[in-house]
Write a protein that binds this DNA or RNA. Structure first.
Length: 520
RNA sequence: GCCGCGGUAGUAUAGCCAGGCCCAGUAUGCGGGCCUUUCGAGCCCGUGACCCGGGUUCAAAUCCCGGCCGCGGCACCA
């Protein structure tokens, strides 16, 4: 004991370098390679991943547009497919025409959002087109005796809730197969028969007990937007996912934490069919500070007060379309999402963080334009000057604005009280009683006197610009004037309004511009 | 209520599985400075965290136990 203590003390007295050297020379067999993974913009290694054999999928329900939270698995999956030279699958899970009725336009809107995000996929499937496949796999499962047709109706559910089960569970395979064909033939109505997967009728989680794999939906009353009322027997999520993930060779399922119990349910299908299950990874939920992400909440707001919002891509929402419309770049979203990775804890991306990344990316490419949000007209007094304003501080291109004595210019209300300022690119002036009187054009003078350099807008040719500024649930409207150079830009341009913030031009109607403030 | 999963600075994340390179790294935010014809960007300096309590160990953010808090699930939704 004493010996051990003294040896430890001796070792501890050595510096790290000395310890390392000693280990390498005397006891190198004890050294173990411990590889440190460089993070940066890359993801942690995918458990059990083998290069060339990774197959991942993004499987949205096309009942609405996707939001930032959905983008997490989509981006992460496509990135893993890229890293491991694997395959990425896009699969639309539209197997509920009744309560989660698919939106016809959502299929293409989702593809568009994904493309914009830089997510690429190698294969695409739509589950509503694969119903026959689910039926035939079920015939096999019934034959194997690990699923059954429950014709007990509501009673079957109640029995399971109490740890018992519908007597049909114990009937013969032949009986099951015949009843299943009856279901497909339309012998039963909604709720009269379901196909259940045999699990454990006493499972601690009642929802796991013999969960429903296929049910009847009256598609005469609730037609599916893609296949109409062609089918009445529809697979549930858990069943369809298990079958498709296996058939499509998915090796890694990356999805939200809310699917943890589903994973447990799906494992019964793999076991029944003798399939090798994929690796399941559950990520935490993603929120965006100050934004509304929830599908149902957005739909709610849109239907209750449509006049208050600019649509599903209103800049106050966290849909991908909304972020795009606001002026957030796809790279910024990718960066933010790669940053949170696949952690199992919920994360709230702070707006400051996303905006900061976006600002850094935008700064390099957004031209600078002068804008006054609270324009106050002033008369310029002094000699004619040709103000040269660079489009971007890093680039040589400039525009020239000629201002002569008697010309009117707009100065922002907040800047008037500064009394003496430098009008950017133009001249140093004294501001007094609605007049801007030139002192000199000398920049050094402005530097020496530490004059504030402000933006200004010539009244002649000034462009009316309305800016929507999202703030929480509010959308402020700011009306002002921008310099004539704004007319050189088309819709969807991203600009920086000097000393105001970054904007994306949303709409141009007859010389009147509308933009959305991306962030300051 | 029952089942499950988590808890590192204001926010997010690295480290945890394989205890010592961690009096905890990075980004953002915040404070200060430099630079700059923007209050933008960039550069420099600073600020600030291992949920709590026990235990194991020479050594604990890391392993064990208990508590607290947060989240998810409990559908013939996905």
């Amino acid at each position: 004991m004493e010996a051990a203590r003294s040896i430890v003390e001796e070792v501890n007295r050595l510096t790290l370098e000395e310890q390392k050297r000693l280990l390498e020379s005397e006891y190198s067999e004890l050294l173990e390679d411990r590889v440190r993974v460089e993070r940066g913009l890359t993801l942690p290694p995918l458990p059990g991943a083998v290069e060339g054999r990774v197959v991942v999928r993004f499987a949205p329900n096309p009942d609405f547009y996707i939001h930032l939270g959905n983008a997490r698995p989509a981006i992460v999956c496509s990135e893993y497919a890229r890293i491991y030279k694997g395959r990425m699958i896009l699969r639309f899970e539209d197997t509920d025409p009744r309560t989660k009725t698919p939106l016809v336009e959502a299929y293409e809107a989702i593809r568009e959002d994904l493309r914009w995000l830089g997510v690429s996929w190698h294969e695409e499937y739509v589950q509503s087109m694969r119903l026959e496949i689910f039926y035939s796999v079920m015939r096999e499962a019934l034959s194997r005796g690990c699923a059954y047709v429950d014709t007990c109706g509501d009673e079957g559910k109640k029995l399971l809730a109490s740890g018992s089960y519908c007597g049909d569970r114990d009937r013969s395979v032949e009986w099951q197969l015949e009843r299943f064909e009856d279901m497909l033939r339309g012998v039963y109505g909604e709720g009269e028969a379901v196909v259940r997967v045999k699990t454990d009728p006493k499972h601690p989680n009642p929802s796991v007990r013999d969960w429903v794999a296929l049910r009847i939906i009256d598609t005469a009353r609730h037609p599916h937007p893609l296949v109409g009322s062609r089918y009445i027997v529809w697979p549930t999520y858990n069943y369809a996912v298990s079958v498709d993930d296996h058939l499509m060779g998915v090796s890694h399922v990356i999805r939200g934490r809310e699917h943890e119990v589903n994973t447990e349910k799906q494992l019964y299908v793999y076991k029944c069919m003798g399939w090798e299950p994929p690796v399941f990874i559950h990520t935490g939920r993603l929120k965006l500070e100050g934004f509304i992400l929830s599908k149902s909440k957005i739909r709610d707001l849109l239907s209750k007060s449509p006049q208050e919002f600019l649509g599903y891509d209103d800049p106050r929402f966290g849909t991908i379309a909304a972020l795009r419309r606001r002026g957030i770049l796809a790279e910024a979203i990718r960066e933010a999402i790669m940053g949170v990775g696949i952690k199992e804890t919920d994360a709230t991306i702070s707006w400051a963080n996303l905006a900061s990344v976006n600002r850094r990316l935008l700064d390099a490419r957004a031209d600078r334009i002068m804008f006054t949000a609270n324009p106050v007209e002033h008369v310029y007094e002094g000699e004619c000057v040709d103000a040269e304003i660079p489009y971007h501080p890093e680039r040589p291109q400039k525009r020239t604005i000629r201002v002569c004595g008697g010309d009117k210019i707009f100065i922002d209300r907040g800047d008037i009280e500064l009394k003496e300022v430098r009008l950017m690119g133009m001249a140093n002036v004294k501001i007094e009683n609605g007049k801007a009187t030139m002192i000199s054009r000398d920049l050094d003078y402005a530097r020496k006197k530490k004059l504030q350099i402000i933006q200004w807008v010539p009244a002649r040719g000034a462009v009316k610009l309305t800016i929507y500024k999202p703030e929480g649930l509010k959308l402020h409207k700011i009306k002002g004037y921008a310099e004539p150079a704004l007319k050189e830009y088309k819709e969807d341009s991203r600009l920086q309004l000097v000393r105001f913030g970054f904007i994306r031009i949303d709409k141009i109607v007859e010389e009147e511009y509308t933009a959305i403030l991306t962030h300051e």
